[in-house]
Amino acid sequence: MEAKLNCEGVQEELMDWLAGTLPAAQHQALEAHLTQCPGCHQELATVRALWTNMGELPVPAPSEQMRPRFYSMLAEFQVEEQRKQRWSVAGIMEQIREWWQPAYGMRVAYSLALLLVGLVAGYVLKGSPETSELAVQQPTTTAPVASQADVHQTQVLAMLNNPSAVQRLRAVSYAEEVAPTNERVVAALLSTLNQDPNVNVRLASLEVLTGLTQDPMVRQGLVRSLTLQDSPLVQSALADVMVQLQERRSVRPLRKMLKQENLNEQVKDKIEQSIESLSGDKTPQPSTSSTSHETDNYTKSGVPAAVVA
Rank of each mutant, 00 (worst) to 15 (best):
T21P: 07
L22G: 04
L22K: 01
L22S: 01
P23R: 00
A24M: 08
A25C: 05
H27D: 06
A29Q: 07
E31T: 08
A32E: 08
A32H: 10
H33Y: 00
T35C: 09
Q36A: 08
P38Q: 09
G39T: 01
H41P: 02
Q42V: 05
E43K: 05
L44W: 05
T46A: 08
T46W: 08
V47S: 12
V47Y: 13
V47A: 12
R48N: 03
L50N: 14
L50Y: 14
L50T: 12
W51R: 10
T52R: 02
M54V: 14
G55K: 01
P58L: 04
P58G: 05
P62C: 12
S63A: 09
R67W: 13
R67F: 15
P68I: 07
F70I: 08
M73N: 04
L74E: 00
E76W: 05
F77R: 14
F77Y: 12
F77S: 14
Q78D: 15
V79P: 15
E80A: 13
E81P: 14
R83P: 06
Q85H: 10
Q85T: 11
Q85R: 14
S88R: 08
A90Y: 06
A90V: 03
E94H: 00
Q95V: 03
Q95G: 02
E98F: 12
E98I: 07
W100L: 13
Q101P: 13
Q101A: 12
P102R: 08
Y104A: 06
Y104R: 10
Y104Q: 04
G105M: 03
